[in-house]
Write a protein that binds this DNA or RNA. Structure first.
Lengths: 362, 362
DNA sequence: TGTGCTGACCGTAACGGTTCAGAAGCACAA
DNA sequence: TTGTGCTTCTGAACCGTTACGGTCAGCACA
């Protein structure tokens, strides 16, 4: 509670017998009035319980809200649970607080199409993090007359971009697995579109995926393995709508049930990979002897278990997005930033056992 | 980038030859005009690139911003690293998105007194999380004519409150340690005031601590141990400004160097306790045989190592704060919510070894 | 013919500030 | 006297909406 009575700049001015301009100046341009008068203004303000210029009215006039909007695919609360999203948030927060800007988290429901939250966010710009390219919220953001930076998204005409080279990154990982002999692989991936499809993702679905990141990674895998002589059409790809360790577990189970011959499970995120590791353990499969598991992101939990993965600078990504947005007044052409990634070879990958070994032991 | 040319509701109205009211109604009250006209309005809007009513102007007029402000003691980026703060954030986000409200993170620097960010946040209310009672940002928030909910803070006249019974919670823990025989204890606590004091905290400083939570916990410990015959004045209390595992390590080292006779290290947070455990290990002290270590919060990392601690419902706390704030229009009297805590006895606490055992082994 | 009702639309006044081009007053120089 | 420069303060326009209290045409009903 605790609501003060309304006093406005105008009522203060009236009380003091000065113009509104003068009161405004008392707050914003101390050098524009005598120290004595300023003191009186401030003191009267205190007496009347005037809290200083209303931020909304000021924003209207100055066309600045002092905040950056963040649009996520997921429920807000999810963002605080996913390590990669958290890293991004931290980086973005760093950039924002460095510039004294607030961070306005836009509430969205990934399963609903209500974009009013986007329309009613009083912000100076938006950062859009990993939403599908056909997301109505994204469209709503782009329709707003404010600068926007997208992350992990396909290029949008005239919009700043921050991301990594997903294609090259995972191709490097694929190359590694191919070089050590894996040909029977399975893939666990995240949501490919806005509709829920917890199960196998056929090639058509992979090709038309609305999540750029997932599509790029799958495409790169397909190319790499096709080149190595693997028929991609026969590679099982299991998709999960929710991104959680539990999803990784169930997806791995589903895949291994259907394709027990698989020697390597490539996951498009560390979280899924952690789930896959759990499932492998549950089945008594030794990693990496019986099964190779790889992830993507390079979160600390993955590092802890020695996961073979691609490390990407999530924090730096958030920071870059923030900086780009906050500096967008300075450059008129849209800019694209691609950050570096690194293949981290951990203890969850090894050459596949030969068929013989699989039957008779190492 | 991507900035559209400015079209306003007024220019749209002019273009259409209708009143502004009608255009406004086309967006906000479809039932107030004929479907045909509404269609025309919306179509013309699209043609002119009018993005719909400006959120800031609307906020000014309707006196609603559609967002909740969050004020933290720490840098924003820190909030994304501290598990307890994260739980709180998640709960708060849950409440906000449930109500379609945005979450505006206010950027502050704990070591600076610049409160402009508080003054310029266009929000309908504030949640204040764990700031010292003399924090100028808190004062700035209270001066704003919007509802406020404080968390883990001392009662502020007329302000909603959410918290736990810190006194009772830690007294329970103290009782446990006393009952199993500990009399030589040491305490590791978090920042007690806004000034940096990395070292021992004398009783005067403990008593005048500006962080309610820390003060309550120390007071409760003092009372409990005094009652058990311990002279609190001789109990070493080491304070750390930064809240991190590293702080816990160095604080434990400092304390154990000065008071090697200590049999139990009571930490006012799990993070500090995790650091203390590291330091104990480094010194070759076995936990709990040689040293008992306890924490506070009940974060998952603590659970993983079996820390004896007080579990508090951080997520619930955030959610309660959010709900209270969003419902504050409905109740006129300030409300106080106290959530339950639970003593979790883990594997890091045990009776102290006798002096004899200490010298000659168990 | 008059009355009352309804649906569709409009005019005006806020909402609470900031900004910019001056005006008033005064000191100082030429 | 005139002009110049400086400090201090003012008036009015403007930011883009929505709330409020209408108006007005058309129609049913008696």
């Amino acid at each position: 509670m605790h609501v003060r009575r309304p006093a406005t700049l105008a009522s203060l001015a009236a009380e003091l017998g000065v113009s509104r301009t003068t009161v405004s100046n008392a707050y914003n341009r101390p050098d524009q009035l005598s120290p004595e008068l300023r003191r009186r203004v401030l003191e009267t303000a205190r007496r009347l319980g005037y809290p200083g210029p209303d931020p909304v009215a000021r924003s209207l006039r100055t066309r600045k809200a002092g905040a950056v909007g963040l649009l996520l695919t997921e429920n807000l609360s999810y963002a605080f649970r996913d390590p990669a999203a958290l890293g991004f948030l931290e980086g973005l927060a760093l950039a924002c607080e460095g510039a004294g800007q607030g961070l306005h988290l836009v509430p969205v429901n990934p399963e609903r199409d209500d974009v009013t939250a986007v329309h009613s966010a009083g912000v100076d710009g938006f950062v859009v993090y990993s939403v599908p390219d056909d997301d109505p919220h994204l469209a709503a953001v782009l329709s707003r007359p404010v600068p926007t930076v997208v992350c992990d998204q396909p290029r949008v005409e005239g919009v700043d971009l921050v991301g990594i080279d997903d294609h090259a990154a995972i191709a490097q990982l694929a190359g590694r697995l191919i070089s050590i002999g894996h040909r029977n692989i399975g893939v666990l991936c995240m949501r490919l579109a806005r509709d829920r499809n917890d199960g196998f993702a056929a090639i058509a679905r992979q090709r038309t995926a609305h999540f750029h990141v997932q599509r790029a990674r799958l495409t790169a895998l397909a190319e790499s393995f096709e080149t190595a002589g693997v028929d991609w059409a026969r590679v099982p790809v299991v998709e999960r709508f929710d991104h959680s360790i539990g999803s990784g577990e169930s997806a791995a189970a589903q895949l291994l049930d259907a394709s027990p011959e698989v020697t390597a499970l490539i996951c498009t995120s560390d979280i899924l990979a952690l789930g896959a590791l759990n499932e492998a353990k549950r089945r008594g499969l030794r990693v990496p002897q019986d099964l190779t598991v790889t992830g993507f992101d390079g979160i600390v939990e993955a590092e802890r278990v020695g996961l073979t993965t691609i490390r990407q600078p999530v924090l730096e990504k958030g920071r870059a997005a923030g900086k780009l947005l906050l500096a967008s007044a300075e450059h008129s052409k849209p800019r694209h930033i691609t950050l570096d990634t690194e293949l981290v070879v951990g203890t969850t990958s090894a050459p596949p056992r030969t068929t013989e070994e699989r039957w008779f032991g190492p």
